[in-house]
C-alpha cells in the first residue's frame, strides 16, 4: 500500500512538473516547475534505495541532487531577473525573439 502511494507520488510530481513546463508562460513559474520535476525524480532515488536496501548511497545521491538543482534554480532565476530588467515583464513571450 505504502509503495503504491510513493509510486503515485513520484509519477504525480513528475507529471505535474512536465505539464507545468508545457503550459506555463511565466519564467519564475517555469523554474518552479523544473524544481517539482526534479524533486519527483529525487523521491524515486530515495524509494529505490529503500527497496534495494542501500539507503546510505541513496541519501548521498539525494543530497547531491538537492545541491545541483538548487544551483540550477539560482542560475535560472538570475537569468529571469536579468530578462525582466530588460523587458519589464516575466512573460515568456517577451523573450522569444530568436528565430525558430
Amino acid at each position: 500500500m505504502i509503495s503504491k502511494i510513493i509510486i503515485f507520488g513520484i509519477v504525480g510530481l513528475m507529471g505535474i512538473g512536465i505539464y507545468c513546463l508545457m503550459i506555463t508562460r511565466n519564467l519564475p513559474k517555469v523554474i518552479v516547475a523544473l524544481q517539482v520535476l526534479i524533486k519527483g525524480a529525487m523521491i524515486a532515488i530515495i524509494y529505490a534505495g529503500d527497496i534495494s536496501g542501500n539507503m546510505d548511497l541513496a541519501q548521498s545521491m539525494a543530497l547531491t541532487i538537492i545541491v545541483a538543482d538548487t544551483i540550477v534554480a539560482v542560475i535560472g532565476l538570475a537569468l529571469a531577473i536579468q530578462a525582466r530588467e530588460k523587458t519589464g515583464s516575466s512573460k515568456i513571450q517577451s523573450i522569444s525573439n530568436l528565430k525558430k
Binding site: A41, A44, A58, D69, I75
Partner: peptide
C-alpha cells in the same frame, strides 16, 4: 539571456529523466 534560459530549462528537464533512469536501475 533567452538562449541561456532555453538551454537551462531543456537541459535540467533532461537531468530529471536521467535521475529517474538511475533510480529504476538502482532500485
Amino acid at each position: 539571456l533567452e538562449a541561456g534560459i532555453k538551454y537551462l530549462v531543456q537541459s535540467a528537464a533532461g537531468s530529471s529523466f536521467i535521475i529517474l533512469a538511475i533510480a529504476i536501475l538502482f532500485g
